[in-house]
Computed example of a mutant assay.
Amino acid sequence: MSEAALPPKDRLLDAALLNVPFDGWSPMTFELAVQETGIDATVAKSLCPRGAVDLAMHYHARGDALMLERLTSADLSGLKFRDKIAAAVRFRLEVVSDKEAVRRGTTLFALPQYAADGAKAVWGTTDAIWDALGDTSEDVNWYTKRATLSAVYSATVLYWLGDTSDDHTATWEFLDRRIENVMQIEKLKAQVNGSPLLSRLMTGPNWVMSHIKAPSRIPRMDLPGSWTRPRQD
């Protein structure tokens, strides 16, 4: 697709990426992108009310889309599920063409006023991975899977940003260790659930968690989740 045929927001993003290594995701970067593309300033502001912050979010979403393309075309059928997760995270980082843009984004989303945006972006990535790998959870596991992977993904990104090893081999080893840590936690949870005494102690919490449901895939104007009302027999 030619540059002129791209949607205006993508044109703004491509222009901004030329300046992000120097000025970060800043107002100056956004202004220069508007000038470079020739897009009317009013139109640009309507597409990105927060300027470069919205472009940074769009950049992250573009990376997620590229990751999903790789996941769709890759043959992961012979891999264990934990290795599929590792492959997805690796794909997500490998589609990044400019590490400095991610570094600058990490700095931006570390600011208190944009921390929620950063968390939303990471959650979106992990949600996309679980969905692509066929997760069908409808209970509290929907949340715990994404929360756990968000922690693994975030730690791996920070490690990757400072990794100077060939082909980022140190990062992939770090990722494998983090996933192994998660697997050990899952084994411990299974042991706890298998203990009659601990199972009785967890009766109350388990009852609460059993009523937590995953958010509906049908767009709704409510909170991202639901609570089922216990039956009154």
Rank of each mutant, 00 (worst) to 15 (best):
M1N: 02
L6K: 15
K9A: 10
K9D: 11
L12I: 09
D14F: 12
L18G: 09
P21D: 01
F22D: 06
F22T: 14
D23N: 14
G24N: 05
W25E: 00
T29N: 01
F30Q: 10
E31M: 07
E31K: 13
A33T: 07
V34S: 06
V34L: 03
Q35M: 09
E36T: 15
I39Q: 06
A41N: 07
A41Y: 02
S46R: 14
L47T: 06
P49T: 02
P49C: 01
P49S: 01
V53E: 03
D54W: 04
A56V: 11
A56W: 11
M57N: 13
H60P: 00
A61W: 09
A61C: 07
A65L: 12
M67Q: 06
E69M: 13
D75K: 11
D75H: 10
S77Q: 14
G78T: 05
G78H: 11
G78L: 02
K80A: 15
F81Y: 08
D83A: 09
I85S: 02
V89E: 00
V89W: 09
R90V: 11
F91H: 12
E94W: 08
E100L: 06
A101Q: 01
A101N: 01
V102I: 14
V102H: 00
R103Q: 04
G105F: 10
G105M: 08
L108H: 00
F109P: 00
L111R: 14
P112A: 00
Y114S: 04
Y114D: 05
A115N: 05
A116Y: 07
D117C: 14
D117P: 03
G118T: 12
G118S: 08
A119P: 08
K120N: 07
W123F: 07
W123C: 05
T125S: 13
T125P: 07
T125Y: 05
T126E: 03
T126I: 04
I129H: 10
T136S: 11
S137R: 08
S137Q: 12
S137Y: 10
E138W: 10
V140H: 07
V140F: 07
N141M: 15
Y143T: 03
Y143F: 14
Y143L: 03
Y143M: 04
R146C: 02
T148S: 02
S150N: 03
A151K: 12
V152Y: 01
V152Q: 01
S154C: 09
A155L: 15
T156W: 05
V157I: 11
D163P: 01
D163N: 02
D167S: 06
D167W: 07
T169I: 12
W172N: 02
E173I: 13
F174C: 06
L175D: 00
R177A: 15
R178F: 05
E180D: 14
E180R: 15
M183A: 12
M183I: 09
I185Y: 13
E186K: 15
K189Q: 15
K189T: 10
S195F: 07
L197H: 10
L198G: 04
L198C: 03
S199Q: 04
L201W: 14
M202H: 11
T203R: 13
T203I: 11
G204R: 15
N206Y: 08
W207T: 15
M209C: 05
S210P: 08
H211P: 02
K213Y: 09
K213C: 06
K213D: 07
A214Y: 08
P215W: 09
S216E: 01
I218P: 09
P219S: 02
P219Q: 00
R220F: 12
M221N: 14
M221L: 15
D222P: 10
R229Q: 00
